[in-house]
Amino acid sequence: MIKTIVMQHIMCCPKALKICKGDDKTMSNKSNNLYRFLVAQGDDAIILSHRLSEWCSNAPYLEEDLALTNVALDYLGRARLFYQYAAELKGGDETEDSIAYTRDERQYTNLLIHELPINDFAYTLLRQYFLDVFYVEYMTGLCQSSDQRIAAIAGKSVKESRYHLKRSQPWITQLAEGTEESRRRILDALTELESFVGELFEMPEWEQQLVTDGIAFDRQLIREKWDHQVQALLSASDINILDSQLKIGGGREGIHTEFLGHLLSEMQYLQRAYPGLKW
């Protein structure tokens, strides 16, 4: 269903077609796919970083405030590395900032789970845990990329994510087994987040092509491992299994939740109000 909607939208909106598909007549098909891949990775990271940064001065206690900000900074660094590579690939006037600050919702291609609001601490940490488990495996796989630069970014990312996971995993247990309230909050978060997990393992055709080319890593290969690891942790706290089948998707096609637009209008405000200036 989503696919059909996307197609219609693109037909009447040539600009979206251009950006969403990363099509650029001056670039080969392969580098188009690569560009699209880099921007998508950058989008995932920048949007999550933005969400995490919203915790700054709002965490349950000071140590946690500093720790969450470190995670936000890691993702911000990751986003910049992917964007910088993409910008170089494209050449011209493109920079990490023009990629981050001058595209609209429909041109952003992050997977939806990254853009959901921070809600409460349980929600933020459960999302983080899901993503930490995912990124440890995914970035490990991506380290094998034949593209040296991607492999290097992945190598850096996997170290970060391993540390993030060390932090988030005990939090899930503590909250699940802490008080009635904390358990209820984890269960509520789970109900909502569950629907957004499946998209992490989706492989659009262009990404599959990059796998064939030895550049990208096949997300589907780690799904079982992810399921197994997450289920094991949750069931140790008597929480029932989770379904990682695709339920809600569309991020890679620029179909988002309504939350993203507000995030972007805040993030991009200065660049949009005063275009083309240096800050």
Partner: peptide, 20 residues
């Protein structure tokens, strides 16, 4: 010093608070 819920957490917070 810092505040933490367990020695394991204290070690992680030490990294985030004192080794930035």
């Amino acid at each position: 010093s810092l505040h933490a819920e367990s020695p394991e957490h204290a070690l992680m917070y030490a990294r985030d608070c004192y080794l930035r």
